[in-house]
Design a protein around this nucleic acid. Structure first.
Length: 420
RNA sequence: GUGGCUAUGGUGAAGUGGUUAACACGGCGGAUUGUGGCUCCGUUAUUCGAGGGUUCGAUCCCCUCUAGUCACCCCA
């Protein structure tokens, strides 16, 4: 127990953290290009925020949240996703006063009490963006472009962009009734899950994998046929922009997101070889969320990308290469006095900006040379009793196996030689 | 939350109801006097995920737990 991380969590070790820095750096760079600025919100929020924001009948809220009472008697919850929290911060800090649209991004851990599986963790990391304040399809397209560009720039292929419209408060209830009317005669034949979905969220029945449910749902009315004029125009506009932007997409009328706040645009980017956890990016529009949280009626749209899944996909495609840091020089020494002098030299070189390796285990010179070779150091500075007496240092070029002596106090010359 | 499979050293793994748990990589030390990469030699698991049980005896059999993995579910 003491030596085991909690279920569904994992350590990101030095051998992997380089990959993380790489994909995080690209996220930041791309966001900068698109004008999105970073926001960092707390890892936990008042439970109420998620109940209201995400919807208390959703799976995420009803069975996957890490909720606890703090010592002050407040119910707090580790964030299972970050859109609700960003909206809260947006309202609390009155960011709407700044300008028309507020473009934000975040990178950080999320928490869901799920059964762990490849690509599914209890603590996982999302890179997400939110554009709050614009209602037209242009932001939708912009944000989809950002997500797509991110995944493609990482080198991923075999990506599928799925889009759909889930309607709005004007047309969704109409659709919901139509769908229920269609399904009602077959209700008894649906699987247990779908029977409970019938009242709660009938649209989810459409993407049930149960065969009977599938065949029943096959000819069900489609949301797209019932969209109100506003939603229909919005969706048409989005498709046009996606095409204009050179983004290949598929309309998936069954695409339903699991969070209640979505309206109009819903989209997902899949990396199909990942199997059951193929959804690498999910997002959509949430025009009602901000009002639901007590703010002025304000439209918004965003997406979230699962970093662990991105890394998995990259690994599968052999893209997980990372550049290892190579020291400019390895300072090797022999003897106590020489060790002190070598330490002094190493510290000075580091002050001057060099990556310097040095043995700290009193190992033999031979062992130090081996270590120098292994870490890929281009040079070794050798400082033994002989050198110390003469006030010099032996500089060995590891590739050519040539050596020269340099005055111990001539750091500038040493640095110059290291440049070669 | 449901079902299936799995669990041996730092890593990849072989193995058997019975006195010493293969092999490979890696690590460490060495192959004359202060020096790497190749080669060679030595060394590196009182222990087989944890806890119980069966047995004269279990890493190999049974149970429970824990963890991983796959499918469902859910989602990123």
């Amino acid at each position: 127990m003491l030596t085991t991380a909690p279920r569904g969590t994992r350590d990101i070790l030095p051998s992997e953290s380089g990959k993380w820095r790489k994909i995080e750096a690209l996220a930041r760079e791309l966001c900068a290009r698109f004008g999105y600025e970073e926001i960092r919100t707390p890892a936990f929020e008042h439970t109420e925020l998620f109940l209201r924001g995400i919807g208390d009948t959703t799976d995420i809220v009803s069975k996957e949240m890490y909720t606890m009472t703090d010592r002050g008697g407040r119910s707090i919850t580790l964030r299972p996703e970050n859109t609700a929290a960003v909206v809260r911060a947006y309202l609390e800090n009155k960011l709407y006063a700044d300008q028309g649209v507020t473009r934000l991004y975040y990178i950080g851990p999320m928490f869901r009490y799920d059964r762990p599986q490849a690509g599914r963790f209890r603590q996982f990391h999302q890179f997400g963006t939110e554009a709050i304040g614009a209602k037209g399809p242009l932001v939708d397209a912009e944000i989809i472009a950002l997500a797509e560009q991110y995944l493609k720039t990482l080198g991923l292929t075999e990506l599928r962009l799925l889009v759909n419209s889930v309607g709005c408060p004007a047309c969704r209830p109409v659709y919901r009734e139509k769908l229920q009317a269609y399904l009602r005669p077959e209700l008894a034949h649906l699987c247990a899950d779908c029977q409970s979905r019938f009242e709660r969220n009938p649209m989810r029945i459409l993407d049930c994998k149960n065969e009977t449910c599938r065949s029943i749902a096959k000819d069900a009315p489609r949301m797209l046929d019932v969209l109100c004029d506003d939603c229909e125009q919005h969706f048409a506009g989005l498709k046009e922009l996606l095409t204009a932007g050179g983004m290949a997409y598929e309309v998936d009328t069954r695409l339903v997101r699991g969070l209640d706040y979505y309206t109009k645009t819903a989209f997902e980017i899949q990396y199909t070889p990942l199997g059951a956890q193929s959804a690498v990016c999910g997002g959509g529009r949430y025009d009602g969320l901000i009002a639901e949280c007590g703010g002025p009626a304000t439209p918004g749209i965003g997406f979230a990308i699962g970093m662990e899944r991105v890394l998995l996909a990259m690994e599968q495609q052999g893209l997980a290469a990372e550049d290892k840091m190579v020291p400019a020089v390895f300072v090797a020494c022999q003897g106590n006095k020489a060790q002190a002098a070598a330490f002094q030299l190493a510290i000075e070189l580091r002050r001057r900006g060099q990556y310097v390796e040095m043995d700290v285990m009193d190992r033999s010179l031979k062992a130090q040379m081996k270590a120098a070779n292994r870490c890929g150091a281009k040079f070794v500075v050798l400082l033994g009793e002989n050198e110390l007496e003469q006030g010099v240092v032996t500089l060995r070029n590891m590739a050519t196996a040539t050596q020269q002596e340099i005055a111990l106090n001539d750091i500038d010359l040493l640095l110059k030689q290291l440049e070669q």
